[in-house]
Amino acid sequence: MYEGQTFEAILERMLNRVPSNVDKRPGSIIYDALAPAAAELAQLYMELDTNINLSYADTATGEYLERRTGEFGINREQATKARRKGLFYASGDVPIDVPVGSRFSINDLDYTAISKISTGQWMLECETPGVIGNQEFGPLLPIDYIDGLVRAELADVLVPGEDAETDDSLRQRYMDAINEQPFGGNVSDYKQKINAIPGVGGTKIFPVWNGGGTVKATIIAANFGPTSQILIDEVQTLIDPEVNSGLGIGLAPIGHKVTVTGAQAQVINVTATLTLAPDTTIGQVQQDVEDALSAYLLSIRQAWANESALIVRVAQVESRILTVPGVVDVANTQLNGSATNVVLTDEQIPVFGTVTLSE
């Protein structure tokens, strides 16, 4: 914004104001007197430019962005704690219950039993907020002794934990709120309210899907994977507790009969024939290929909420495989047994299945 306010430009303008019969060469008295002032002015202009950028939502960051969005009631979403399924067994793999509040550990993470799902199955909450609570699976160690407990396991992600909202996400929510004007149960209003619920990563709204006054909200989990029934039930309770009542008991307006569902998982199995570099085997590239394809499907799921329908493309699968070191060429690629793209419905998401490679 303050282009042309460099040290050299400022000093040149200052020297131009000095009469020409005065020595203005570097090292002269007037030059040495003006140069420090010009340097301070150049620094001041840089700080002014930074301050102006921090005043507008499209360029502000950190607390300055929060102060701008907060003026419109849009605040940064804080990190949330993951809720997981814990499995508990006594001798002989007999399911056993544990006390509410009992704590368990896995790889420096601690989980607390908060509610019972069924005998031997409990909802655990990670004591550390953020996505880190979604990542571990496997054997749990009880922090305190529990009589009769022989084995404990950390299983499904029921409600994904989320990290604190990024600047980009906060800025986008602010722009959406300003430009789309959510109001009184319109599509933008539903999206804003449901997306703000912990554990929800995106929402599609289907108005009048089953007659007048009906609304269908399909959600994807915050980790962009399939949605657990527990999360679906929580969202349903907040939006319209008495399903299809239209009484306006939840966040939905009076007269709106809301049904909440989860995005449907479509497994994608891949087969391909590879040409490998010398001294490279299928076993050496298998994991890298799986990681590349898993990342590709994740990128598709991340775009789900803003796309009418998703397509898993053979060409994209092949291009991802070709990025793996040691892979020279790929042919005969099939998705779910067909050489064509997989076109999903507007409520489906692709999830990683199997990868079968051959030479």
Rank of each mutant, 00 (worst) to 15 (best):
M1E: 04
E8D: 15
A9V: 08
I10N: 02
L11V: 05
E12Y: 08
L15W: 08
N16E: 15
P19R: 01
I30P: 09
L34F: 12
A35C: 09
A38Q: 02
Q43S: 12
L44G: 08
T50S: 12
N51D: 06
L54N: 11
D58R: 13
T59V: 05
T59I: 07
L65S: 06
E71L: 14
I74Y: 01
N75I: 10
T80H: 04
T80V: 03
R84M: 15
D97K: 00
P99Y: 14
P99M: 06
V100E: 13
S105N: 13
D110K: 00
K116L: 13
T119W: 12
Q121V: 15
L124A: 08
C126H: 01
G130Q: 05
P139V: 14
P139K: 08
L140C: 08
I143Q: 06
V150R: 13
L154K: 02
L158V: 09
D163Y: 00
S169L: 08
R173Q: 05
Y174M: 10
I178C: 04
F183V: 15
G185D: 01
S188N: 12
K191N: 09
G202T: 11
G202M: 07
K204P: 02
V208H: 06
G211Y: 01
T214F: 03
I219G: 06
G225R: 12
P226N: 05
Q229C: 00
I230T: 14
Q236V: 02
L247E: 13
I254C: 02
I254H: 02
K257Y: 03
V258G: 02
T261Y: 01
G262F: 00
A263T: 10
V267T: 15
T271L: 08
T271F: 03
A272N: 03
T275A: 11
P278R: 00
G283Q: 01
E290K: 09
L297G: 00
L298I: 04
S299K: 11
R301W: 06
W304S: 04
I311T: 15
V312E: 00
Q316L: 07
I321V: 13
V324S: 08
A331M: 11
T340W: 04
L344F: 13
L344G: 05
T345R: 05
D346H: 06
G353T: 03
T356W: 04
